[in-house]
Design a protein around this nucleic acid. Structure first.
Lengths: 237, 237
DNA sequence: CGAAGGCTGTTACACACTGTCACACGACCG
DNA sequence: CGGTCGTGTGACAGTGTGTAACAGCCTTCG
């Protein structure tokens, strides 16, 4: 469930984290683990469920993965998304959440046994993995902040700005983003309903902050105001 | 910011986690780290701030510590509470949140250098620490669930049931709990306002679910219904 | 080829819950 | 005794929700 790039996924977190420079991926490669079996998984396929014994560490190559939990009454909460380059499945041996694809996704699957062997042989390797878990925790804290204290406008802006920053961190333009997931996934991630997400997109568009192309491409027209919204710089208190 | 007992602090998490049995505390004791300098800290004192370089790992002996973040506009979010027996400060070298006491608190302070030395000398020690961070992550996920999908009644019930379970895990009665923190801290923890927390206490009392003694002692009068509330078994979906 | 149907997203409107503002009450303390 | 602090309660407004209807796009199938 650990999203190695989670530190770039939430707004404020991106600024405040120590920036581990993601040293674990090269280390995986150096150990030959990075070239493990590659799986091609269809959209809406489940990788694991909450409570499962962890069997693999996955590296997302293309597509997107959604990490979620489900309440007894069926209500679902999306905890994080994993994009190409992200590593998921670090952390405890028992999965703390469900994981399923939201697109056609290609994954590298590293068996847990091989991963643990690498950790045992190289303490630094384990240390880097721990850092990633700590970063995921910091990202989860940020998620709590977003959900508990931001308005619908601010939440969506926060989500979009995190994607924008992620683009920039990967050398792409931060001026627009492609949304790989559906409105329902965004709603469950932001603690809103699908209708509110839809309305909020409309509000941001009418306010001149964004423009929309075919539902899943967002072009930013006023990054400064969007960033202010995302940071929760509203006039409360 | 890691709360070693966080797994018993959130409701559903308590059921689902692998139960690490908190192996790290005895290990600290075995290494002599557990008997480090003991600090006595007054109420409302800050232990560290978000962004600070981590200097110590703390073990709470008496009192209670509040882990929080603050938004640019002053809004505060409580991420977790740490109670006697909990370890805080595990994880990254840069603090991902603020920490301050909400009571007169006694703490054991273990310098980070000593802690890291212990990890370097004993891989199992580091492994146990990592497990605690992973558990804190799982607890943070649970916190996201509570805040994003539960009503005010359910949130407060979830909070109270977590405290009840914690009491039971420590060999005490789960039939009542003492609240060491103020209403405002609870409100910021549950993503509510202080007024709503107050009204919710009243609602639970009038519904016969709890009884209150002098604002900070809660007696549970219907644990079954409280647990159902806490689990989010409402009639949605 | 075109119509039917499903899926996703958008919009409208009444309503419920929570937040906001205001004030009262009691405990504690100088 | 008067001040502050923490808490509880009421009236009211605002945001988001739930329900519903509708539009656009795609696949399916006659």
């Amino acid at each position: 469930m650990i999203n190695i790039a989670a530190h770039s996924f939430h707004d404020a977190t991106a600024i405040k984290l120590p920036q581990p420079a993601m040293a674990i991926a090269p280390m995986l490669a150096a150990r030959g683990l990075h070239s493990s079996a590659i799986r091609k998984v269809a959209c809406n396929e489940t990788l694991w469920c909450e409570g499962d014994e962890r069997s693999h560490i996955f590296v997302v190559r293309t597509g997107a993965v959604c990490l979620s939990r489900t309440l007894p009454n069926g209500r679902r909460i999306v905890l994080d998304f994993a994009y190409p380059g992200d590593i998921i499945g670090l952390g405890a041996d028992t999965q703390p959440c469900d994981a399923h694809t939201v697109q056609l996704t290609r994954l590298e699957a590293i068996p847990v046994a091989a991963f643990k062997r690498a950790v045992a042989e190289d303490p630094e390797f384990g240390r880097q993995a721990s850092i990633q878990v700590a970063n995921a925790l910091s990202a989860a804290y940020q998620h709590v902040v977003v959900i508990s204290k931001l308005s619908a406008n601010e939440r969506l802006a926060s989500f979009l700005m995190a994607l924008s920053r992620r683009n920039e961190a990967h050398g792409l333009s931060g001026a627009s983003v492609v949304l790989p997931m559906k409105r329902l996934d965004i709603a469950d991630f932001l603690g809103l309903t699908i209708e509110t997400v839809s309305r909020t997109f409309t509000r941001l568009r009418e306010a001149g902050l964004i423009a929309l192309d075919q539902h899943n491409v967002v072009v930013f027209r006023d990054l400064a105001r969007l960033r202010a919204l995302a940071a929760g710089e509203g006039e409360h208190d």
